[in-house]
Design a protein around this nucleic acid. Structure first.
Lengths: 226, 226
DNA sequence: TATAAAAGTTAGACTAGTCTAACAAATATA
DNA sequence: TATATTTGTTAGACTAGTCTAACTTTTATA
């Protein structure tokens, strides 16, 4: 078990994190394609191909020409380490420095690359070993374990069901700011009053307030727990 | 007053910070030479020359071939902004995350390059607007002002004089760890019992404990206030 | 199954930051 | 002041990460 290697460049770290995120997205088969990865990182496919060769050389991914990309165990653990840092920093910014939901990501993108094992662990302790970040995403433990929570989309609820918000699926600024306007945060209770079959929209009650209509798109962007 | 520009690379920031530090060192004339700067940054003089041209192009330094290097007002303000971040992060690591005196610098070297005006200001607020960092060095304010304190070297004191430690001149790990061993931190009271003319060493009393001899080198590495 | 479209690769070029080796200017000193 | 030493510059090369343009392989589909 000699997984986390600190000899990764800023860029290599970003590729590993992207690959990890993509592997979460395509749940069943955690593979990614070159173009997919390039698009995710905002680089050209040619650039991604070059980096892939490098990552393969370092045994962080397995892949062969024209084939799919898969993280090796080492690659995965390194990716998880970066994700851990990202989410701990997001939590710090949100809880200690009063950053808003939609502001934390950008800064955490930078902070996640700081190299110092002590820093990460002390930060985690300082934050009281949080299990989920401000968006409700699980924060990997130092050993690479990722906490789970059974969550479903708001859109999956039946009429009259009660739930609590546990995470956001969409982390775009527009959505997060809309949630803030509706005064929805992690933990907010929601009751589904009515489902409109016509367009998939819902009538919901947020924290006991008066009824409000939300779109299908909205209901499919919010994770809740019954 | 349109000083702080965020379009500086990681490397450019380091050059500005180095130039600022060197200007503090050579108090009377805040100029630096190419070799001096290169040595400080751990690069070769040829490399420094190249960067200098770039910084001159951006109007962050004034300098002409074979001449001395001087920061422009813009260059100075940018350097101060980086120093501010560095010292605020050091304070954070020391006070909130229990880093020791000699561990903070290395990590702060990385953290100082995080780009986010909000982050710096919020961090400062979170730390309660500290004026001095763990080494006793002044933390520049958001407007570029640098707090001052009248400090003298321990070696300048006469026999029987009392003082308090306010800063360290030498920030090397060996020295900081030695101070820790002697249980000297910022604020510790010291009394000079005897000056030994032969070798410049002193007999001192630390926080009322029993007498102890320290070398001239030691006495010239510690700043105190009468 | 032949072919068009999509996905992926290669080759060659560019930038930022670094180096070494050779050279030029400034300064110190005999 | 002539020369040796120190200081600083230039030229050319290398690496990491990026690009564009042309090419190849895979896949989807008519």
């Amino acid at each position: 078990m000699f997984y986390i290697c600190s000899m990764l460049s800023y860029t290599e770290e970003n590729y590993l994190k992207a690959l990890l995120k993509l592997s979460f997205q395509n749940e069943d088969k955690p593979e990614a394609g070159t173009n997919e990865m390039a698009a995710y990182l905002g680089v050209k496919p040619a650039t991604a191909t070059d980096m892939l060769k490098k990552l393969k050389e370092k045994e962080l991914v397995t892949y062969k020409k024209y084939g799919k990309i898969l993280l090796t165990e080492t690659g995965k653990q390194n990716g998880i380490a970066i994700l851990r840092k990202h989410r701990l920093w997001e939590t710090f910014l949100y809880e200690k420095l009063d950053f808003s939901w939609d502001e934390v990501h950008e800064v955490a993108e930078q902070l996640e690359h700081i190299q110092s094992a002590k820093l990460v662990d002390k930060l985690e302790e300082f934050l009281n070993f949080p299990e989920f970040d401000p968006h409700g995403d699980p924060i990997p433990k130092a050993n690479g374990e990722i906490p789970t929570i059974d969550k479903i989309l708001l859109s999956e609820l039946k009429e009259n069901e009660l739930c609590k918000v546990v995470a956001v699926k969409d982390t775009s600024t527009v959505f997060l700011q809309y949630l803030e306007k509706l005064r929805i945060t992690i933990g907010t209770p929601i009751k589904v009053l009515e489902r409109i079959d016509f367009d998939g929209s819902l009538s919901i009650q947020i924290a006991g307030e008066e009824a409000r209509n939300v779109s299908m798109k909205f209901a499919e962007s919010l994770f809740v727990k019954r």
